[in-house]
Design a protein around this nucleic acid. Structure first.
Length: 864
RNA sequence: GCCCGCUUGGCGAAACUGGUAAACGCAACGGACUUAAAAUCCGUUGGCUCAUCGGCCUUGCUGGUUCAAAUCCAGCAGCGGGCACCA
């Protein structure tokens, strides 16, 4: 039979063929099979922005390698996909392009589905979920009602960024330098009554749960723990002179209360507002404080402003001690009680405040074994607060106690006198889920003037969004819709209004992974399916989701559990956070950024803009973003190099949790390697029947290759289990290098070569699946799908080494190496080390003080 | 401002519990093949020094612990992510 040897790998034809075969064989569609262990691989589902960007490409490649690897290992792998389809960009597109959010979203999904198809992912498309579909969000409306019934959803006032021109609430992202991004108007803080979920009720459980997540990155657990921010301390009340109310503060250091110099309230504190009624200057100050955004970064970095009120507060321990009461813009109503006490000597922020406002600095803690007088003088002159622990002074009943003892004594005194109590404070706040936007899930309640808040009855779900909406960028579209909100009250039948707020899009992403288990079920969650598939074994996504999404989802699952939906605590037992994909930026002298595809290399080696030949400077590599135009289009890359090359490149060099630089030479290199492997395969296509040589060939070159192949199986298996794709590929490359070194006409017929080729193909199957399938069939003659073949197993008898390279140091410096048989006899190793000529010259004439021998690793000879 | 990371050759990186720093690749250079180019193949490549053997230096910076530090500890710098309405 005449065999046609193709010298050039035709990825277009090959990739299309195997995509079709996988699809027609339905080999990635799964069902619950109790006889097989399950494995749930999930990448964070994409927002349908229109194009698949390299960040997505990296995310789904990582997930697909894991899915294919685990499938080969015999797991029943669930690997679903869907669309996080509600969100702000659709409304922006509606405004800019006069296209309905639903239509824009649908066409984006269609485009991205095609991009995904070309990647060759082993996804179960039969489970596709789209969150903006009423079939999806009807279930979360029910969940919301269950939360409401259980007291997990409630309303309260909170601050938003308000654009006075557009009459809309702005996202933090839409506030640029304190102004609305479209209107340019200065943003104001505004109080709005909004829906919240009582996530703080789960603060302790969410914190404790982190302990069980041993397959999460340590840094993410630390970030979440800090976000929850548990701190033990006390609440104390300072009575307001001449009024019946008091100022309640929280402190972790009640022992420093005798050092108090002032109290301060948040501008939105009820007492601040009450005092402003009789104090016009304060009213002006409060107005002034509103002229800023609401994000923490903004609040923490704006210049501190304060106002001294005309009232004083009385110290909880000394009723006659009156302290000034300030209103300050750096005190946040959402955090703690919205009030603080200031202790300048022992808190740097308070110290700065005291210096600015000429307040007394009273030292009440001195470091252990320090002279109080000298220390006090030093502290006062330096302006540096002492925030450490020590011994209490000038503190009445606390004098002489150490900080910790004093803390408890102070708390006991507060409780005894009724001026305070022990309290555990969490930084975590309840989750505000209200959004004054159109493109989100309607909150299914009705406001009735007589009956109050009435839940929409279950039979009336879903509450769907109106199609005929006018997105003008002015006001809230649902609020302004002529008919949608007008309904009759389900209870009394009177005139009533729908809630016009929609849910935060994090609501959808908090349970989509549960819906994938049974996406077509009439029930929100199909219990047997959820029980079988959950929890997610490996979740993969961007590190930017470390806190918000991942914490909301952990909370949400617990809330569902308590509403009887499921029995599960943690949704994701394994988490991997990938790094960003970066690219150099190109910029013209006029400051304009240039897209990589519009840059040409000029004759003198410089870079120029294609259209006009303007010189282009190459800037440093940054996260790919539209604004910097440093985006590489995935569809173009796949068209030019094929999906396998792109997958290979993205996995090759950078470890997946680090940022990755996209480079032209890198993708070229991947493409060349694909062709090298292809050529290794074509060598075998001419092969005659394989002659099986006996094991006693070990030691000869082909046998050494055989041994190396087994070692590579072991190494790659271990690396893939630990998501070390870059080192897995390095060892596969080392193996193929060895194959190329094998010379001679009959190489292709050599059984060790054949085995090694098969090994390489099987190890590459998760990484470059199309190439691997092609070689599996064409070069190795298999007839079934590699996608369904089992993972290779190494022969453990071939893994061990009998010799080691022993490093020999003299006084910690390397002076030679020797190859020795593995051996635990310290004196033998020492003798061998001493025999090295270079070692001899180094120790000549010196007394040997000590010899450290670490068997099979190193010998260190110390001389005097 | 607060929280969390990262930093190793010209570049991406490797080094598993402290034990030979730089595996694997990219780029560059030299050579083979070719009329030529591309592709491919072979070789060199951390820096300084040396005829050779070898020697000295080198993991952001400054200290510390240790026989031994990229790795552990303390301090500092630079860069990046998050900060609750971008997703």
């Amino acid at each position: 039979m005449l065999l046609v040897i193709r010298t050039h790998y035709n990825f277009r034809e090959v990739e299309a063929r195997w995509r079709t075969k996988w699809k027609s064989s339905r080999c990635f569609s799964v069902f619950e099979d109790l006889d097989r262990p399950k494995y749930y691989v999930l990448e964070m589902f994409p927002y349908p922005s229109g194009r698949l960007h390299m960040g997505h490409f990296r995310n789904y490649t990582l997930g697909d390698v894991i899915a294919r690897f685990r499938r080969a290992q015999g797991f029943n792998v669930l690997h679903p996909i869907g669309w996080d389809a509600f969100g702000l960009p659709a409304e922006n597109a509606a405004l800019e392009r006069k296209i309905a959010p639903a239509q824009w979203t649908d066409s984006n999904i269609a485009a991205m589905r095609e991009d995904f198809r070309l990647m060759g992912l082993s996804l179960d498309w039969s489970r596709e979920v789209t969150t903006c579909s009423p079939d999806y969000y009807r279930h979360e409306q029910k969940m919301f009602l269950d939360f409401l019934a259980r007291g997990l959803a409630y309303r309260k006032e909170s601050l938003v960024n308000w654009d006075p021109i557009e009459q809309t609430v702005l996202a933090n992202e839409q506030v640029i330098d304190g102004r609305g991004w479209r209107s340019g108007a200065p943003v104001e803080q505004r109080l709005l009554t909004q829906w919240f979920l009582r996530s703080t009720a789960y603060a302790e459980e969410l914190l404790a749960g982190l302990e069980t997540l041993d397959r999460w990155p340590e840094k993410i657990r630390v970030m979440q723990a800090n976000w929850i921010g548990r701190s033990e301390g006390a609440r104390a009340r300072f009575a307001v002179t001449g009024r019946t109310d008091s100022v309640e503060i929280f402190t972790t250091r009640p022992e420093t209360l005798f050092g108090t110099a002032f109290c301060a309230l948040a501008p939105h504190h009820p007492l601040s507002i009450a005092l402003a009624e009789t104090d016009p200057d304060l009213a002006v100050f409060l107005q002034d404080c509103k002229r800023t955004g609401t994000s923490e970064a903004t609040l923490e970095t704006t210049e501190t402003k304060s106002y001294r009120t005309h009232v004083t507060v009385r110290h909880p321990f000394v009723d006659t001690w009156e302290l000034p009461l300030y209103i300050a813009n750096f005190v946040v109503m959402d955090y703690g009680t919205g009030a603080i006490f200031g202790c300048p000597a022992h808190d740097q922020k308070d110290m700065d405040f005291a210096i600015k406002n000429n307040l007394p600095v009273k030292v009440v803690v001195v470091p252990f074994n320090t002279d109080p007088v000298i220390f006090t003088a030093m502290l006062e002159s330096s302006g540096r607060a002492f925030e450490g622990e020590g011994v209490l002074i000038h503190s009445d009943f606390l004098n002489g106690l150490d900080s910790v003892t004093a803390r408890h004594a102070a708390m006991a005194q507060l409780e005894k006198t009724g001026h305070g109590y022990r309290h555990v404070h969490y930084r975590l706040r309840d989750w505000g889920v209200s959004r004054q936007r159109y493109w989100g899930c309607p909150i299914p309640v009705i406001h009735c003037p007589k009956c109050g808040i009435v839940p929409v009855s279950e039979s009336d779900l879903p509450v769907t969004l109106p199609q005929d909406v006018d997105i003008t960028g002015y006001g809230n579209p649902l609020e302004r819709h002529p008919t949608w909100k007008h309904v009759s009250c389900p209870v009394c039948g009177g005139v009533a209004q729908r809630e016009t707020d929609t849910l935060d899009t994090f609501f959808e992403s908090s349970w989509y992974f549960l819906r994938y288990c049974a996406p077509h079920s009439a029930q929100a969650l199909d219990c047997p399916a959820v029980t079988y598939w959950m929890p997610v074994d490996q979740y993969i996504g961007g590190v930017e989701h470390a806190v918000l999404h991942l914490l909301y989802a952990r909370f949400f699952v617990r809330a569902l559990r308590d509403c009887g939906y499921l029995t599960l605590d943690e949704p994701f037992t394994g988490l991997f956070t990938q790094g960003m994909v970066c690219h150099v930026t190109y910029q013209c002298p006029d400051g304009q950024f240039v897209h990589p595809e519009d840059v040409n290399r000029s004759r003198d080696g410089g870079m120029v803009r294609r259209q006009d030949g303007a010189p282009v400077t190459v800037g440093r590599s940054e996260k790919m973003s539209k604004s910097r135009k440093n985006i590489v289009d995935t569809a173009h890359i796949i068209e030019k190099y094929g999906a396998d090359s792109a997958r290979l490149f993205i996995l090759s060099d950078s470890p997946p949790d680090r940022d990755l630089d996209w480079t032209d030479s890198g993708i070229d290199g991947a493409w060349r390697y694909i062709n090298r492997v292809w050529r290794l395969g074509t060598r075998a296509m001419t092969m005659q029947p394989v002659e099986r040589l006996p094991y006693n060939m070990l030691g000869h070159s082909p046998a050494a290759l055989f041994r190396q192949a087994h070692k590579t199986i072991a190494k790659v298996t271990e690396d893939l289990e630990n998501l070390r794709f870059n080192t897995a590929l390095a060892s596969i490359r080392t193996l193929t290098n060895a194959m190329e070194k094998l010379a001679g006409d009959q190489v292709g017929a050599n059984w060790a070569y054949h085995f090694t080729l098969e090994t390489v193909v099987r190890l590459l199957a998760p990484i470059t699946p199309h190439l691997a399938e092609e070689l599996w069939q064409e070069a190795l003659g298999h007839t079934h799908l590699l996608a369904q073949a089992p993972w290779p197993r190494p022969d453990s008898t071939l893994l061990g080494e009998t010799t080691v390279v022993l490093a020999v140091q003299v006084n910690g410096k390397l002076r030679g190496t020797i190859v020795v048989k593995k051996c635990d006899d310290l004196s033998k190793l020492e003798t061998a080390a001493m025999a090295i000529p270079n070692v001899q010259t180094c120790i000549a004439g010196k007394r040997i003080r000590k010899v450290i021998v670490v068997p099979n690793r190193i010998v260190n000879i110390l001389t005097s």
